[in-house]
């Protein structure tokens, strides 16, 4: 996007997600998508599989998205994006091609197409807004739903842990992998700006709150994003050219410069974790899961602390 962004005031005013869209009040995805489009700008083409974003565009003959957008089948976002990029490349056109998909379309039904695109080294940006369940269809469990969370298909709370897409993408060979969270504006912008400059498959996974699905009041949307990072439930990191780095507040946590806040602060405002808070065993298991994740990530950071020699 050219200009350096150091503070919120440097962010361009041009909007490519137009107001009056269909997102629920307080939607985390709408915040993220609004900024992703600002960063990538008008020279961008988007593919969107079935997900909340396919709905929030609004109804034909209007759309809230002001860049070319191809709605595509649920499992196909990364594959259509690959084809689009090839088509532009064949015509000598330099355009950002970005797939924007939910966690269902990424962790589950779209994983194969994403994995193939990454393996082929496709020159695309893939942004998964991860609201941790099938929200568009009315809150059903996905591979990204965290342990203990209520959904309509896990009425007593999910028994399994969520998949780790980020690690999968590192192992899969993506050029750039990062987690983002719109509660941390500059970390968010920094990573997308970096992704835009790079070539090859770039995968960004966005923490994305969902007030109706997570059962909390919408005014807490940004607050929850902060708590997710401060309690260690969501880790901010990036991986590029063989180097893994914690970023932002997660870096402070990793370096021991800050202490993880009690997880209860993050869980309590969310109705979806009511079962966990009522059951000490479940709470223990959830905490164990987070500790385990941190252990793995610290190890990853150690292994990928500098580019592989030779």
């Amino acid at each position: 996007m050219g200009k350096e962004i150091k503070t919120v005031k440097d962010i361009p005013l041009q909007e490519l997600l137009l107001p009056g869209h269909v997102a629920c009040a307080g939607c985390g995805m709408a915040i993220s998508v609004r900024h992703v489009l600002k960063i990538l700008g008008g020279n961008t083409v988007v593919t969107v599989p079935a997900c909340c974003l396919s709905v929030i565009q609004g109804l034909f003959p209007k759309t809230a998205v002001a860049v070319p957008l191809k709605n595509v089948p649920f499992a196909s976002a990364a594959a259509v994006a690959s084809g689009l990029k090839a088509g532009f490349r064949l015509q000598g056109k330099e355009l950002n091609v970005v797939a924007i998909a939910g966690d269902g379309g990424t962790y589950d039904i779209g994983l194969q197409a994403l994995s193939g695109a990454v393996e082929r080294g496709e020159d695309i940006i893939y942004f998964c807004y991860d609201n941790q369940a099938y929200m568009n269809t009315g809150i059903q469990r996905s591979g990204a739903t965290p342990y203990g969370a209520w959904t309509t298909t896990t009425p007593k709370g999910k028994k399994e842990r969520r998949k780790d897409l980020g690690l999968m993408m590192i192992a899969n060979g993506a050029t750039y992998v990062a987690t983002v969270n719109p509660s941390f504006p500059m970390d968010f912008y920094g990573k997308f700006l970096k992704a835009e400059e790079k070539k090859g498959p770039r995968v960004l996974i966005g923490y994305s709150v969902c007030p109706p699905g997570w059962r909390y009041t919408p005014e807490l949307s940004i607050e929850l994003g902060k708590l997710a990072v401060q309690t260690g439930a969501w880790i901010l990191w990036e991986f590029e050219e063989g180097v893994f780095r914690f970023t932002g507040y997660s870096k402070r946590l990793a370096e021991g410069k800050a202490k993880r806040k009690p997880i209860e602060l993050y869980l309590e405002p969310q109705g979806r974790f009511r079962n966990v808070l009522r059951d000490p065993e479940k709470l223990k298991a959830l905490k164990r899961g987070i500790n385990e994740r941190w252990r793995v990530y610290r190890k990853i950071a150690e292994v990928y602390s500098s580019s592989t020699p030779g």
Binding site: T47, V72, S76, A79, S82, L84, G87, Q91, Q112, A113
Partner: peptide, 19 residues
């Protein structure tokens, strides 16, 4: 590509650019 689903999807993408 890694599947026929993606073959058709990639073709749909490329054709959408006018190729």
């Amino acid at each position: 590509v890694e599947s026929e689903h993606s073959a058709a999807a990639a073709v749909m993408g490329a054709e959408s650019t006018g190729v």
